[in-house]
Amino acid sequence: MKAEQNTSMDILLKGIWKENPVFVQVLGMCPVLAVTNSVINSIVMGFATTFVLVMSSFFVSLFRKLIPRQVRIASYIMIIATFVTVAEYIIQAISLEVHKSLGAFISLIVVNCIILGRAEAFASKYPVKEAVMDALGMGAGFTLAVLSLGVVRELLGNGTLAGVSIMGPSFEPWSIMILPGGAFFVLGAWLLFFNWLRERAKRQQERVMV
């Protein structure tokens, strides 16, 4: 990586594509599989995670010089848990239905390795602006990933997108897509797709080199 051109924009973008937390780093799989049976759930989960990511990165970066090393992980977890609790109450206030369908997985954002991972690997080492940009990028990448699962699963599993009928009334839904098995298959298929893209890119690069 060219260090000199490391603008905030680059930091933001790498989370979405090059270092996508889900498709590239294969992190935080639990919510990706669990709550993506509909587009709405995916969006809410994506936003909630991004919110927690940004807020905790902000505070971790802000206090990075004050927190002693020995207690840093404990502090990060505390900060993260705080914002997860906040996010949970906000979602509950906005819509009980959504909160219900996401179930315990909102609380489980606490143990999403992406967040602790970013806090430890990035926010604790960089100033606030970069940390927030990084968090935003990772959050966007995560949101994109859950959304890409949610779209496929809701479209095939229900014939709708965000509740709006797309495939018409006579479409036969594939129930498996909203069942756990479908979650594994769709995520597996997306990873396969990205493997294929990367392989193709590599092959093209090799051809150019030759």
Binding site: A3, K65, R69, Y126
Partner: peptide, 13 residues
């Protein structure tokens, strides 16, 4: 890590 341009942003480690 990759950041050299901004010297004072060293890890607080």
């Amino acid at each position: 890590m990759h950041m050299h341009g901004t010297g004072h942003h060293h890890p607080s480690a």
